[in-house]
Design a binder for these strands. Sequence first.
DNA 1: CGCATTTCCTGGTAGC
DNA 2: TGCTACCAGGAAATGC
Length: 280
Amino acid sequence: MPELPEVETVRRELEPYLTGRTILKAERVDAPDGPKYANLARAAGQRIAGVIRRGKFLILPLGADELIIHLGMTGVLSPSPPARHLRVRLELSGKGALYFKDTRRFGRFLVVAAGEYSSLPTLAALGPEPLDEAFSEKAFAAALERSAMPIKSYLLSQRPVAGIGNIYADEALWRARIHPLTPAREVPEHRVGPLRDAIREVLTASLAAQGTTLNDYRTVNGEVGGYLSELDVYGHAGEPCPRCNTPIAKITLGGRGTHLCPMCQAPPPTPSPSREVTHT
DNA sequence: CGCATTTCCTGGTAGC
DNA sequence: TGCTACCAGGAAATGC
């Protein structure tokens, strides 16, 4: 599923392809006329000034508007039409086009007035970019103090830092040896720096491999991401921990599959009731 | 306001 | 073989 490395890979490919082109026509195809595709037709006639990424959102500054794209779970952008599940077609000046394929319809492709993110609460409250200087250990520690949520759930909320999804949350917590159920504000002080570093390292390494393809994710050129084979815990339930050989466990946390090493990642000091956790 | 729960959606797969 | 049941999860909507 597209997280920061996947979305940034797409952004890097889109930027030279789209920048400076004018959208001649923007149309929904087999997609609802609802908030996920709000004001799409308004993009017509506007020039694409660039391609920006914030967290997992792609932002295309137009004239007075911005085109906001979120790939959701299965969104794929390409210059040629997909065989199935087409949701949006942009006709571009210079005889180009951009197609949005989204099998499971979790994605978004909408137009808002520049900076008007009220219809996108996650974007409006997005934390700092993990690869920016603003994502300092000090700022991260202060953010963790503000929540009692399990650290993994808090990371997925996009508030302490932007762009982390289910795969890289598991990978980063494993690297930093932190149990996913640990309340954010109870992450030991001496592990905050390692977690911040682990987040940056795993995202950087995945970006270098053009991301992780589990099923649907493709680059704009149609290629798969190469980081799948480098994952340490995600998708490796029952296999030996790369550090200590203890079998990797899979639990359910907040409705999400969660992978961890029960030896390396010590349980939180105040365990949550066992009924909130399903072992498999 | 903050946090937990529910909802959206389709393809792949397990089980019979 | 063909059917049903279930699972995958990002973020918005809803509930409290």
